[in-house]
Design a protein around this nucleic acid. Structure first.
Lengths: 139, 139
DNA sequence: CTGGTTGTATTAGTTTAATAGTACAATGAT
DNA sequence: ATCATTGTACTATTAAACTAATACAACCAG
């Protein structure tokens, strides 16, 4: 008997030449998997050790990724049991959300302006960029 | 007699606690000065040495900032003479501009989405962020 | 061509981020 | 209680970013 086992194991992979740190690549892949439904609420992530072995990296690197996602509220984790996709969709207050958005936007806008782009150009690029991102173009 | 000397010396300043590297702070301040008219085409920037003394940092750090701006086309520089605000307003082809915009937008959007922000929220934040930036709110 | 100005190159020191090695601690089934 | 499983803590190593010390090279006025 197995009514609804685990959907699919999810295939993680790392690109050492990308310049993006391993732990961030893991976080991104989890986030995208959540975004397009390959991970749903309650799913268990691979264990720290198994993913470390799979990716041929140190368990601590996986743990760091999981820990950061825990802090962000993306997953919740229980020692001895595992790490699971969090059931809390929204876990920030409006104030926190706005503060975070601004802290994301400001450096981005500084750069964009310094390169001479107009607001409209940026806005359009953001909208277009969103289209392609939600279709699974990673990094 | 001095018909139009130099507008104003421009006051540079550094914040060591900001975490933003000195050379980037210098670049940002030049860019903002250009954006709001405190620097105009042909203006001479402070010399590498004078600015280094002024900010109490090594000349090489200033040179690095100037060099990066030179590469971007923001300034042009002549050894023995000085560093000046470039007269080339547009120095990228449309293709180059688009490529650069996209390379700015993509990682930004990845983050924004991973934090659960919607396109509209991001677009609004971008527009608001632009307002405050062009009024001189630096860092 | 000489002296003082300008930016540049090379190298080294310091700090910080990223990853790994290794040992520890909590959970749950038996 | 015991054991195998899970995540965690602490330390060390590596690699890169940042800044500085110091010496060099181009330009221009006299």
């Amino acid at each position: 008997m197995a009514p609804a086992p685990e959907r699919k194991p999810i295939q993680f992979s790392l690109d050492a030449k990308s310049g993006v740190p391993f732990y961030k690549q893991i976080i991104l892949q989890v986030e995208f998997a959540i975004a397009d439904g390959r991970f749903i609420v309650g799913d268990q992530l691979p264990t720290v050790r198994s993913l470390a072995v799979d990716l041929k990296i140190n368990p601590n690197t996986v743990a760091r990724a999981y820990n950061e996602m825990e802090i962000r509220g993306i997953v919740n984790t229980q020692q001895g049991t595992g790490t699971f996709i969090s059931d809390k969709e929204i876990r920030l207050t409006e104030v926190e959300r706005e503060g975070m958005l601004e802290s994301l936007v400001r450096p981005f806008m500084s750069k964009a302006i310094s390169y001479g782009f107009s607001v409209d150009e940026v806005v359009n690029a953001v909208q277009d960029g969103f289209q392609s991102l939600t279709r699974g173009a990673e990094e």
